[in-house]
Design a binder for these strands. Structure first.
Length: 192
DNA sequence: CGGCCGATCCACT
DNA sequence: GTGGATCGGCCGA
């Protein structure tokens, strides 16, 4: 069952990031369908968040998709090599997003292994946002895709996520964000 | 149009 | 724990 648009248009991006833990992400891209459930996310809270690409209400061709209604993909290139996948949230003109930093692969494992160049799925297989995009076949050209479509989508697979299984910490790799670098906007599923 | 830099990863020490 | 890879986006001129 796909997540409804109303899941993405909620105004509390930090809670959306937390609620995305345990939800399933799927892609139907060349090679077949791959997917898994989300194990790590970060919230980026728009124009007042120094870590966000939309800080200060900055609008560029790249960031424009963040200003659209929640429920689309915002994918961009980082360090010249890695695509990073974000889920746009909130209503139109409020550029909030959630970065998907880790998944637990469940579907299309052979294809994910092939895309990764690895020979087995270990703990470090999908524990970073660049790796997640690589194994799911997501590229920055997919930015703007509607998540209610059949290319990239999310489902509520009925996984129960207990509050005491959630670890919260500051976000990674955003030291430039000054005081906002310390905000507790990162959510991880603890190892079972 | 040139130059700087990044929401990372991996090999190597 | 650290440094190099690598290139599109952004800004200033």
């Amino acid at each position: 069952m796909k997540l409804p648009t109303s899941f993405y248009t909620r105004r509390d991006v930090v809670n959306v990031a937390r609620d995305l833990l345990g939800k399933y992400i799927y892609t139907d891209l060349p090679g077949g369908i791959t997917g898994g459930y989300i194990t790590e996310t970060e919230a980026y809270a728009g124009i007042t968040d120094k870590a966000s690409h939309a800080f200060g209400n900055r609008r560029t061709p790249r960031t424009e998709v963040m200003y659209r209604k929640g429920g689309r993909a915002y994918v961009y290139l980082c360090y010249g090599i890695h695509s990073l996948f974000n889920i746009v949230t909130n209503v139109e003109d409020i550029p909030h997003a959630v970065l998907v930093r880790g998944i637990n692969p469940t579907c299309g494992k052979d294809l994910m292994l092939k895309r990764s160049g690895k020979s087995l799925i270990d703990k470090a297989f999908a524990n970073g946002p660049g790796k997640v995009c690589r194994i799911l076949g997501i590229h920055w050209r997919h930015s703007g895709l509607d998540l209610s479509g059949d290319t990239i989508w999310l489902e509520d697979g009925g996984r129960k996520v207990r509050e005491d299984k959630i670890q919260i910490s500051p976000r990674i790799g955003i030291d430039y964000a000054e005081e906002d670098a310390r905000l507790p906007y990162r959510f991880l599923l603890k190892k079972t």
